[in-house]
Design a protein around this nucleic acid. Structure first.
Length: 271
DNA sequence: CCCGGAACCTGAAGGC
DNA sequence: TGCCTTCAGGTTCCGG
């Protein structure tokens, strides 16, 4: 599932191929993928616009256009952006046609991904919490967030309004690295645990970016290659496998209807 | 505001 | 082998 490291990888690998290019038009094969504006408005305002920059905020990928508008893509669960000519990849739901004969194929078996064209990208990004890899995301900032919440710390980590870009698998990995049980009430963490968690979040995300993201589900890089971050996972998606630290089986429980993987020994109920 | 649960989707995996 | 059910989870919406 594309989370921060996957979207960051897509941004880096797509950028050199598309910045400075113009968009001839966009084909929508699954119209509900467009959340705003209307299809008529969308086609009217996108045709012929030049891509001046590509940015990421949380899990959103932002194409900045010379018109001042921004084309914003969210891959949600199973989306991938593949750069190519032909043939059209399986599960293609939208095609962004560039002026060099190449296209960006938005492939998404689950049809959860979304495209929108907005005048002001802040309308979308202002709802997001800080970027976990930026300087302003300090242990103090994290501690303040957690201290206001009684929900399980796992649920708080994946709340995009608090921290932007962490999803289910990297939350599990960060909590394991910090040796914190995912069910612990967020406001029950000690200062030491907050510091560990802060460090773990940044380490886990940076490592995953170095590995070009985790190819679970339908994630592919723009060239069609997979990432390798999933092969370094210690607990995420590893139910029943043995903990690399203590050798006990990884447990899987449901938190907020999300599969949560952890080691009962290394991440005990009470810190 | 805070919290938890349902809905959106469909391929994959598991049960019988 | 095959049908059927369940699972996967990012975001949005809704109810308590």
């Amino acid at each position: 599932m594309p989370e921060l490291p996957e979207v960051e990888t897509i941004k880096s690998e797509l950028s050199p191929h598309i910045i400075g290019r113009s968009i001839n038009g966009v084909t929508l094969l699954w119209e509900r993928m467009l959340s705003q504006p209307s299809p008529e408005e969308f086609h009217l305002h996108i045709a012929g616009k030049k891509i001046t920059g590509l940015a990421r905020r949380g899990k959103y990928l932002i194409f900045r256009l010379d018109s001042g508008d921004s084309l914003i893509i969210h891959l949600r669960m199973s989306g991938a952006l593949i750069l190519g000519g032909d043939p059209t990849p399986k599960y293609t739901r939208a095609i962004i046609h560039l002026n060099n004969g190449k296209s960006i194929f938005f492939c998404d078996p689950r049809k959860f991904g979304r495209i929108q064209l907005v005048k002001d990208e802040c309308d979308i990004t202002k709802k997001l919490g800080p970027e976990p890899l930026e300087k302003d995301f300090t242990a103090e900032v994290l501690g303040k967030m957690l201290s206001k919440r009684k929900a399980p710390v796992k649920a708080v980590l994946i709340d995009q309004a608090l921290i932007a870009g962490i999803g289910n698998m990297y939350a599990d990995e960060a909590l394991f690295a910090a040796r914190i049980n995912p069910l612990r009430p967020a406001d029950s963490l000690s200062q030491n645990e907050i510091n560990r968690l802060h460090k773990a979040i940044r380490m886990v995300l940076r490592d995953a970016i170095d590995s070009k993201g985790a190819s679970v589900s339908n994630y592919f890089r723009p060239g069609g290659e997979k990432g390798s971050a999933h092969s370094h996972f210690k607990v995420a998606h590893r139910k029943g496998e043995l903990c690399p630290v203590c050798g006990r089986p990884i447990k899987r429980i449901s938190i907020r209807q999300r599969g949560s993987h952890y080691c009962p020994k290394c991440q005990p109920e009470r810190g």
